[in-house]
Amino acid sequence: MSDTVLFTIITLSAIGIIAAVILYFLAQKFKVYEDPKIDEVDEALPSANCGGCGFPGCRNFAEACVKTDDLDSLFCPVGGNDCMSEVATILGKVVAEKTPQVAVLRCNGSPKHRERVNTYDGAENCTIAHNLYGGYTDCSYGCLGMGECVDSCNFEAMYMDKETDLPVIIQEMCTACGACIEACPKDLLELRNKGKKDRRIFVSCMNEDKGGVAKKACDVACIGCSKCFKACKFDSIEMKNNRAYIDFEKCVLCRACVKVCPTEAIHEINFPLRKPKPAVEKPASTAEVKDVNLVAEAKKNTENAKVETKVEKEDTNKQDENKNNETK
């Protein structure tokens, strides 16, 4: 009996040793030289492999970083400026800071605002529905509500709001990788600068129909009335195809446009609530209300998410500070 055991142990060990030796020599023989810096850069990257940089994965991005002379043309949206400066120090190159961005949804057509005129009964996929027809409302530009963007998000930064049937972007989780922008067949999502204190103003509508048609289809559509265009002193609003577009590079967040919009199609995010005015008081825009919810929701989500990275924590702290400032 003990002989058998001994024999087994010896044989197995012998096989192991011989295999190890063979493997060692083979590994030596077929070794491919790789710049060790690629490994270092790879380490510094977030390993999300989301493709937001335009490369298939983080490793390819790292290779490109090592090869290139000009780091400015490369950017990892997930890691952001911190990550890029780390990469730059590893490689001894310089990189310019880029403004952090976040995805925003340019449709506010919840069932409350947009009447459903038919029922979609096909496969649950936005692109299929988009290829088939305009949508279940009279607005053929609006959100189809089947969540292809949510499915495409690698960072759990989006979810479908059951009440509004619209996707919601959790700003703290969004890495601006651009996957949702690719996914949306209606081109409703846009990457915009995060803005000072995360404050943003944008037109939440893509409807290019004439004013009357758009308004009939959806209460909160941009009707192309140009009031905001006239109100803007900074030339940051552009009127095109019956709708307004705010250039985030030029916008100074003065909120003049928000006040004049007759359909509340212009959204302001993360601004303090306006002081109540004695005169005609407009009810708080749905966007603001939603946003408070959104922040609460986002916090809940970050708590729920077990993977708490440092970046996220910092972000939530910042957010809290903001809120404190706002309440003060």
Binding site: N118, T119, D121, G122, I128
Partner: peptide
């Protein structure tokens, strides 16, 4: 009536 719409 709200008609159902789907692909063939």
């Amino acid at each position: 009536n709200k008609f159902k719409v789907s692909l063939s």
